[in-house]
Design a protein around this nucleic acid. Structure first.
Length: 298
DNA sequence: CTCCAGGCTGAGC
DNA sequence: GCTCAGCATGGA
């Protein structure tokens, strides 16, 4: 029996260590390696080191509880628990999705510990701008270089990690400077979009106040942002979970599962939104994770 | 060598 | 409106 409801058991261990749990429907492998984020790394000891926004933390997972270090209990409560979406009722969502059909049930079971993160909207948008026609390992390399070169330093465990650079900082670069991250032709998209956001042409902080379709249309005015990137930005920042950033893997799986539901992206999105409603984005993420790991290996 | 990777833009219909 | 080459880079 899985825990439901919004209460997350929480213990302050002092010395900058916090323990959370028991938590069900969570697994850092599913959550951090499903392709929604690019700044979590597993250490040799099995811990996870992550940077999000202007914060960093170390996470340990024993299969039942999370132990967080490098963050104050207050930060854990107000930032990391919402970031990891630990208060949401995944058992209920998984049950609903699984009931919708057998293959979805298999995909849900396969990625049972997957949670949709609530990442910073700018960081999410920029990293998925880089993701286009690109592979996950190289996306990580590029994002890493961007942060090290242009991000604010964050003292962490006696060393330094770097925040994702702000739109203002990136907007001040020229194409030559930005090329150190080796993003190729995406440099131009990143530069122009940084400038558009820095100029206030699109206000990312206002997206959550807009209905899904208007939020997406707003993002589509940015250079290099298409439907896929806009949907990923909305979904993985937690702004709109009905966003359905269908890609070739899910297209392949969906077309196999539901022949005739539509071979185009738009009709598949409509199909998914009708079938899974506000959970369409989560449904796609289970499918994506399932298809990718089953067919390519992690 | 070719093909692919969490696509998008701009040109030509 | 629609289709589609071209796009930088690096790994398989």
């Amino acid at each position: 029996m899985e825990m439901t409801g919004k209460t997350v058991p929480f213990v302050d261990m002092a010395d900058g260590i916090t323990r959370i749990g028991p938590v069900n429907s969570f697994d850092p492998t599913h959550t951090f390696l499903c392709g929604q984020c690019f700044r979590w790394n597993r250490t040799e000891s099995g811990d996870w080191l992550g940077v999000a926004g202007s914060r960093a933390m170390r996470l340990q997972w024993d299969g039942r509880r999370l132990t967080i270090s490098g963050a104050t209990p207050e930060e854990v409560r107000t930032f990391w628990i919402p970031y990891l979406d630990l208060e949401a009722d995944y058992p209920k969502w998984k049950e609903n999705l699984s009931a919708s059909d057998a293959v979805m049930a298999e995909a849900v079971a396969f990625g049972a510990g997957l949670r949709l993160l609530r990442q910073d909207p700018w960081e999410t948008l920029a990293t998925f701008l880089i993701s286009q026609n690109n592979g996950i390992p190289r996306i990580r390399t590029i994002v890493d270089a961007l942060c090290r070169c242009f991000g604010e330093p964050i003292p962490f465990e006696g060393s330094t990690v770097y925040a994702f650079p702000s739109p203002n900082v990136l907007a001040s670069l020229d194409a030559c400077e930005m090329d150190v991250c080796r993003a190729g032709y995406r440099n131009a998209y990143l530069l122009k979009t940084s400038r558009q956001v820095a100029e206030g042409e699109v206000d990312l902080s206002r997206l959550s106040a807009l209905p899904y379709r208007e939020a997406r249309d707003s993002l589509l005015t940015l250079h290099g942002v298409g439907v896929k990137v806009a949907d990923c930005a909305l979904l993985f920042s937690g702004i709109h979970r009905s966003a359905f950033p269908v890609d070739r893997w899910v297209l392949r799986v969906m077309n196999a599962l539901y022949p005739g539901s539509g071979s185009t992206t738009e009709s598949l999105q409509g199909f998914a939104r009708e079938r899974w409603g506000v959970m369409a984005g989560l449904a796609q993420e289970y499918l994506f994770h399932y298809a990718r790991v089953k067919k390519i290996g992690i």
